[in-house]
């Protein structure tokens, strides 16, 4: 439990650091950090119920996307601003690097192992992201059409 809390804290400050590098407005930083901590928390919580990395990352990405869409509505900013620092700790950057490193040093067994891991993580995250953001897009469209009908 302490380990997860420390990791969530790490995700929180890494998210804030990255948001400053990405030139985010000052008052939005705290949400960016919180999104990172929350998404990693969701990933750890999912790990209790399932062993599949794909499902864990999918749930985490869905939680992060939902959070960023809600915060985006509350603060009237595009959701991408919160989404990118939120998912950053989970993106398969490490395994992508290990894959290419193994390829460069001609270690084929490692390349296959990390390549598979990269693919599973990236695909899981992307599926979680798509489920929520496509759902949100249609909800938005319906609300917009309704708004336009009322005003015309």
């Amino acid at each position: 439990m302490t380990k997860v809390l420390i990791e969530m804290f790490g995700a929180f400050i890494a998210g804030i650091g990255f948001s400053i590098i990405y030139n985010t407005r000052g008052k939005r930083l705290i949400w960016c950090g919180l999104n990172g901590a929350l998404a990693w928390g969701a990933c750890c919580a999912a790990a209790v119920f399932t062993d599949s990395i794909f499902v864990q990352y999918m749930i985490a990405a869905a939680a992060g996307t939902l959070f960023s869409e809600i915060v985006a509505r509350l603060t009237k900013a595009p959701a991408t601003i919160y989404l990118i620092p939120g998912l950053l700790p989970m993106v398969p950057g490490g395994s992508l690097y290990y894959t290419t490193y193994a390829l460069v040093t001609s270690n084929e067994a490692d390349a296959a192992f990390f390549g598979k891991q990269t693919a599973v993580c990236a695909f899981g995250l992307a599926v979680g992201l798509v489920i929520i953001s496509v759902g949100m897009y249609y909800i938005n469209e319906v609300l917009l059409r309704k708004h336009q009908r009322e005003h015309s």
Partner: peptide
């Protein structure tokens, strides 16, 4: 100073994240 802070917290946070 803000950039230094940002890069430092970025690296620091990720390392804590990776235990």
């Amino acid at each position: 100073p803000m950039q230094i802070f940002a890069y430092f917290t970025g690296g620091f946070g990720f390392c804590l994240f990776f235990n």
